[in-house]
Simulated scan of single mutants.
Amino acid sequence: MSSVSSTDAAGRSAPPSRRMSAGALSAALVPVVTCATALMLLTAYTTTGAAGDPPARISVGNARIFVPPNSENTAAFFDISNTGTAGDVLTSVSSTELGVTMLGQRVTKDGAGRMEPLDSLTIPARSRVNMTPYGVDVMVLDPPKLKVGDTVRFDLWFRNSGQVTVEAVTVPPQS
């Protein structure tokens, strides 16, 4: 019976443990690299937010802006629906056609009402949020001259859903 043995440059036989270690290392390397690659891909998948709850499904309707009663300020209103199974957050509203716009909320203290800036507005899953003059709206400071029937483009920015663009129609106050 003959056995195959490995020899070095001097003609000496390599020990059996050395012959097996190169093969064992090669065989172990494939699953280790495969596991490391899979772990990196799963980490990237969860980091992007793609894993987990399905995304919110945001739609915006009934967009309107009051014709300013004076030239100082006015307000815009939107009905925001989320038919998804995850909530989202409205972080800002902007319009290239208007001056400064910001989310605002009516606050009543000691019988007097006033508008205060609002950092964001949560839109829960499977819900609808209607902006009104008596709750949350978009404050528009120093608007240009507007008349009934004009349209103004607004960009609503959501934390997860990104930008939603709508056209708001100017209406008389309290419509």
Rank of each mutant, 00 (worst) to 15 (best):
T170R: 03
K145W: 05
A75E: 07
V89I: 15
K109V: 15
L118W: 09
A50H: 12
L90V: 10
F154T: 04
G61E: 13
L42Y: 07
S161T: 11
S120D: 10
G149Q: 05
E167A: 15
D8M: 04
G23P: 00
T132Y: 10
T74K: 00
D8T: 00
S2A: 10
G99V: 08
V33N: 02
R12P: 00
A50W: 07
P55S: 11
T74Y: 01
E72P: 00
D137K: 12
A86K: 07
S92D: 15
R153C: 05
D53G: 14
V30W: 10
S26Q: 05
T74P: 02
S120H: 15
A9F: 03
R106Q: 13
S81W: 05
V129I: 15
V4A: 09
G113N: 09
L103I: 12
M20P: 00
K145G: 06
G87S: 12
N130G: 12
N160Q: 09
L29F: 08
D79V: 10
D150W: 01
D119E: 13
R153I: 07
D155G: 01
S120V: 06
T151S: 11
V148Y: 00
Y134R: 13
S6N: 02
G111H: 14
V148E: 05
V33S: 13
T48S: 12
S21Y: 00
S3V: 04
R126P: 04
V67C: 02
R114E: 02
L42N: 03
V152G: 01
V129T: 15
A38L: 15
N82F: 14
R12C: 03
V33F: 09
R126V: 07
A51I: 01
A56K: 02
M1D: 10
M115D: 06
S21I: 07
G104Q: 11
R153K: 15
T108Y: 09
S161N: 14
G52P: 06
A38K: 09
M20D: 08
S71V: 07
W157P: 01
Q105K: 14
V67T: 07
A36M: 11
S71K: 03
S26Y: 01
A50P: 00
L156A: 09
A112H: 15
P144E: 07
W157Q: 14
P117A: 15
M115I: 14
P173T: 10
